[in-house]
Design a protein around this nucleic acid. Structure first.
Lengths: 190, 190
DNA sequence: TCATCATTATACCAACTGGTCTATTAGTAC
DNA sequence: GTACTAATAGACCAGTTGGTATAATGATGA
């Protein structure tokens, strides 16, 4: 049972990957069906409301994936400066590869749909807020003030989303690297 | 008569606006034709290579629009810290409005197409680089070092793109505000 | 065994996609 | 005027879109 993924999970994983790379409107159900090998009948069985419903589950899947990525690094490194820096350096390596197929975690979908689908927008916002709360927690533990932790977490989130965007547009990890190097300066005041 | 702009310019302006809001795949030629009132025949007369060609001109249009926005503020304020801060505060007001229809300047298209259209990706990259060079120039004039100016300009760009993304997802100017407030700290070292 | 329900598999749909083609009209130069 | 080109207009196209309908199959439990 442990490794037997069912059709629903496969659909979510494939959709999550494709939406990250090409966005909501850039991916058709056809793409998801072909890439997953799961027929349309099954898709509409598990997601009766169709593409939008699948996209929301895909966003939540991406959200959890990113949470795990952040937390894994944070558990190893106590100092928030070093932990956040390490996380961004790691991203710079991934997105520096010319053949990266990761895309903006949820930024693309968020930007495409913020005027057209409230349910999707909300799902994206929740993802962003959860990531933010991880940064807040890490900063609070290191005795940053409540206010400072909150504002810094926003900035960190923006730097990461913006940095990924720059790096994948340039097909080059340099932007994320430059950003990682500024983290100590930014976190100097508690 | 009042509208001395020709059909080509109208098409570029409408396309530019729609692509910013819903991205490349989220906008059909139909939308552009309906919104502009200009028939398909004209569109393919001015842009024989179709949607992709129009998108590239739309990106360049957005690029120039943003350049003017940045420069206008920069000409008024000498101090780069205050100038950049003012620019981001201004963005926070625009994107804080619940009914903002501006979208990520070019981030959405860049993220959607970086794996599917080299010409579009390149146009996006050029836009980003030109914006960056404006920041570099401003910093150099204020005696920031060559190296520092370059790395800071990357960070500023990431903060703005990321901040806009957070603000329009949250339908709230707060993220951009929080970012603007960190600018002095970030620019403390020359 | 049979009955029940979950799942899979397609055929089909109207609307729309980007794009082509041809006909017509407006504008300009001579 | 005439000739030539720029621009407009929209019918048409093949392929795709998200979504529906229905039937067949698989699994489960009584």
């Amino acid at each position: 049972m442990a490794d037997k993924r069912n059709s629903k999970d496969i659909l979510i994983e494939v959709a999550s990957r494709l939406f990250r790379i090409r966005g909501y409107y850039g991916v058709g159900l056809k793409d998801i069906i072909e890439e997953s090998g799961i027929p349309k009948g099954s898709l509409y069985h598990y997601f009766p409301k169709g593409k939008e419903e699948l996209a929301i589950e895909a966003i939540n899947h991406t959200k959890e994936f990113v949470i795990n990525e952040i937390k894994r690094g944070f558990d190893e490194i106590d100092d928030p400066i070093k932990a956040i820096q390490a996380h961004i350096f790691q991203l710079s390596e991934v997105f520096g590869e010319s053949e990266n197929l990761l895309g903006l975690p949820i930024g693309t979908i968020a930007a495409e749909t913020y005027t057209t689908s409230e349910p999707i927008r909300t799902a994206c916002q929740e993802a962003i807020e959860e990531w933010q709360s991880i940064y807040v927690k890490k900063l609070l533990e290191a005795k940053y003030s409540e206010k400072r932790s909150k504002e810094l977490s926003i900035v960190i989130n923006a730097l990461i989303e913006g940095g990924i965007l720059l790096s994948l547009t340039a097909k080059n990890g340099e932007p994320l690297q430059a950003i990682a190097e500024q983290i100590p300066l930014l976190l100097i005041n508690k």
